[in-house]
Design a protein around this nucleic acid. Structure first.
Lengths: 340, 340
DNA sequence: CCATTTTTGAGGCACGTGCATCATAAATAT
DNA sequence: ATATTTATGATGCACGTGCCTCAAAAATGG
């Protein structure tokens, strides 16, 4: 039994193909009664619109924009690399991807940028930016103008059905598990370093980390978050301080995606061989650190998977197939030396 | 700049659309010289055949068969569940999936089954069966008849470019890392239980496990593999024996995908709370065991990812886009209580 | 009732490719 | 040279859907 076509639909509903077309594409000028008849036939026949044929007819193409922070962060570089790769992989699906850099901390400029996007040129946008009212409103306006929008990695709580990223709470808790179980000390303190605690991701990781530590490793004391603000001198000063004040250090958790600076400083400051060190994201640096033992574990989200998932979700949204993409959950990965 | 079509190609190569068509679809009756001219034009224009349009023209559909062992194993059940799910997800791509059960240990019957597959009905097959000359030959014959074939989870060394599964050596090594690092004992022995050591996966996991143990945890002694052959009584006897003979047990590694029987027996046989226990694959049982502490870690391959990856690979092969699908590497996942 | 508006039908072209047929041109054999 | 084979061109339909136009039918208003 072949897939029913619009012709079959028309016959089943007792209307013409023109009317079926009007209903399918939400054109007006059709009586409610007729609309219902057609929708009933759709259900009865199990009609599914052939998207390839539809795209052919409209010569539709998908152009997706990834709006990413400007930072030179290694993780971001990986993301960009995978976007280029995905551009090739999805070329046969008529999908093109571009990267645009935004000022992540300037909601106003982000909102302005989103406002400039033309639905005729841009099919959808994946946005990696911290939550803010301006951005949220801009996203809503964008959607109203017919551009698909998808929070990417950084989540916008306003639209939780549509977003691509991991469960930060679980990620933080997993970091805690690794430190707690890898460490053979039953007492001691744990350094927590972050670039900034202003983002929701960082906060949630920290909460998950503390919850797990308190519950399962009560002997271990988690120190207040050290915020580097991306400033090396400042990082050096505060890490140095903390190391001196806490001689019972048994581990360190770097919860921002840029692990290089804090870890390098830590290693320079003290002999940190006995510390359990956990950081985030697979990058050339963290891979190398895992291999040579500078890191004991990495909590990661697969950048390739993130990107491909975002593309598929954006495509599903523009094709109006919202329901399906749900199973695309991004896992909290644990990377050890042996499974890089 | 729009994508060039066969019309553009014809113009650029100075031939007719009919000839372009003959070249593109490998029909004969074209002079070598002309073929070269067309291929040159393909490269110069960067022509990519519009597969959606091609499929439409041929009313091509993809029907993929998953040939799986008959066993009632939880992991296999998960795989089947995800195949059903994928069937829905990929419906819009004109892909249908069916599951067929085979006698994994009877190469002759597998070969016979593969021989019955009709290229007109079956576009491709994902085969999960242990390596054997008969199966290998049957796969080659299948491919010659125009059916795409893909070793699935169980690998066939003869075709390493095309297969979907994880690096078993790394998986075994990761199990060793977890036991070695989670255990606070510097000396002791580790139980290794398997359903059978006849499959390549089991052997490779075991090799990876031992290599890592010997190199990084020399104080820990890995015991010879206990093979249950799926027989509960036998399992009980040999596990019981081994526990009695090795009072210094500090951990257990179950390397087959069925973890329930050995773990249950182990828990019944002794107070195994202090043991570090690692097994394979995410199943309802292992998830529950992680949650309540009966398992300390699970080494897994995402069944959904495995299935979707197989579908995409089979599709890529039939669309003759072999190069791209390569980045679809299946990760060796580490599951802990916190990142289930 | 007629005039007007709304709803529906009929039909056709387009998208890019596969596939078929028939005619013509070029190469090769005799 | 002519007959035969081989290579190429010209053309047209099909796939399933979007989108357009024009006419006809039905509903609505007065």
């Amino acid at each position: 039994m072949l897939r029913p076509t619009t012709k079959d639909l028309a016959k089943a509903a007792g209307v013409s193909r023109a009317t079926v077309d009007r209903v399918l594409n939400g054109r007006e000028g059709v009586k409610k009664n007729t609309v219902d008849r057609v929708n009933l036939a759709i259900k009865e026949l199990g009609f599914v619109r052939n998207i390839q044929a539809a795209n052919l007819a409209r010569s539709q193409r998908y152009r997706f924009v990834f709006a990413l922070p400007r930072s030179g962060d290694l993780f971001l570089k990986e993301i960009v690399r995978h976007i280029d790769e995905a551009s090739e992989t999805f070329a046969t699906d008529l999908v093109w991807c571009d990267v645009v850099h935004i000022d992540e901390n300037d909601p106003h400029s982000i909102s302005a940028f989103l406002g400039t996007l033309d639905p005729n040129e841009t099919t959808g946008v994946a946005i990696m930016a911290p939550e803010s009212p301006q951005v949220r409103d801009a996203i809503f306006r964008l959607q109203e103008r017919g551009v698909a929008a998808l929070p990417f990695i950084a989540d916008q709580s306003a639209m939780e059905e549509h977003w691509v990223g991991t469960d930060h709470h679980a990620a933080g808790a997993t970091a805690a598990t690794l430190i707690g179980r890898f460490s053979h000390a039953s007492e001691g303190s744990v350094l927590v370093v972050s670039e900034s605690m202003r983002s929701r991701d960082s906060l949630e990781r920290r909460i998950g980390f503390d919850a797990e530590m308190n519950k399962h490793f009560p002997g271990l004391r988690t120190l207040p978050s050290l915020e580097t603000y991306g400033d090396e001198e400042r990082a050096e000063r505060i890490i140095h301080n903390s190391v001196n004040n806490n001689p019972d250090l048994i581990g360190a958790y770097v919860l921002s995606s840029e692990a290089r600076v804090p870890l390098t400083i830590l290693n320079d400051t003290m002999n940190s061989d006995h510390l359990i060190k956990i950081s985030h994201e697979r990058t050339p640096f963290t891979e190398a650190a895992l291999r040579n033992g500078d890191l004991d574990g990495v909590i990661a989200q697969d950048p390739g998977h993130l990107v491909r998932s975002a593309v598929r979700k954006l495509k599903a949204i523009t094709d109006r197939l919202v329901a399906k993409g749900s199973q695309e959950r991004i896992r909290v990965e644990v990377l050890l030396r042996t499974n890089i």
